[in-house]
Design a protein around this nucleic acid. Structure first.
Lengths: 118, 118, 118, 118
DNA sequence: GTGGTCTAGACCACC
DNA sequence: GTGGTCTAGACCACA
């Protein structure tokens, strides 16, 4: 389920975080579901185990998953945290654009354009 | 006019690009206006000339300015390029959010919330 | 494989670009092959790493290679881009000559002469 | 007649040389015709007189024009020199391409393509 | 004076 | 280890 685009400029650990959050937000992963172990996932995605471990530790820090020594990592009670993390980049981009002097209406117009194209 | 925020985590050369684009989009800088020379601006902003030169070379590659050996850098015919470059980050964030499963309406709602707070 | 001619007046970073493109066009470098790291190549060619980095960043911007943080630079899907970049100078010289009033036949005749001499 | 494109990356003095050669090759300027004085031309094209002077001195060195103290510059007996100078860039581009491993046939094919497009 | 290129050496995030 | 960014200072061609 979790997938990576190696050509993507964003750090791989971040892509993993996003991917997990996406699955949670979409309901593919539910509360207390077990995530693949760091080693498993690293092997599957051809990554350095450290990279996966880093992603998991961030997700744990953000309260999106919890780990149990020797058992693995599991999806936490979410309360919208996963969704929030997903739109985190979007929020900061909005803040940046507003700071740069764009108006809310201009941004909304851009979104309308872009969703129309799809 | 062009300014830098040293606390901003984004690369300085990018901040310069944005700043120039902002001035062009706002009409402060117009077609064929001369930009401060790389050395001049570097001194003004307390930066290394190379950093400014990098920003200028990117702006030139993107067709936003043009340079003339021994004369300086000048604003090119814009045709909205500057504005587009300014909202480039926002656009990619929108694309990412839509890919992540967010709906256009949700994103618009977030913008409304955030601009209300300001 | 990649080599530099210090007597050549064209910029070193450009020579590197050309050299890489040549290897790709010739099939010596293939899709997803890893290029020597910037530091490695710099040491090999007795250059400053920044010079190599500049060449690589241009190749990346032109879609000829792609870079991965912490991993290195790799040959992108080419679709003839490398060959096109190689003959880029030639193309612009042809355009210039045609603009100057030369006919295609005259230019072809010049090429025939020059290749005969070799 | 002589004209300059300030956005062109090639040095202005070179553009002047080319422009004069073009006029000679095209028969617009003939043997012993007088060129505009450096000062005149500089004023006309909004250039630094030094730039025009440099161009003229190069043309004189190459035997394309001759100067008479206090009288001005005049077109020399050409014997094809102007035409040769015009195609000089083309020749070096051909040499470069051949050195890079391109075959004469490939280059000829490119010329055919490009002249077809016009 | 200008931009363009290059060197030397540094710090950072990422893997 | 890698690439990405930045600084400090240099040389050159061009105008």
């Amino acid at each position: 389920m979790i997938s990576i685009d190696p050509t993507d400029k964003s750090p791989i650990f971040e892509q993993i975080c996003k991917s997990v959050c996406r699955d949670i937000a979409a309901g593919v992963l539910r509360e207390n579901d077990r995530l693949p172990s760091a080693r498993e996932l690293a092997k599957l995605l051809q990554l350095n185990p450290n990279t996966v471990a880093k992603a998991y530790s961030i997700l744990e820090r953000d309260g999106i998953i919890y780990s149990m020594q020797g058992k693995g990592c599991f999806v936490a009670r979410h309360e919208g945290k996963a969704y929030e993390k997903l739109t985190e980049n979007f929020r900061s981009a909005v803040r940046e654009a507003l700071d740069a002097g764009a108006s809310a209406d201009e941004l909304i117009e851009i979104i309308r354009e872009m969703s129309r194209d799809n």
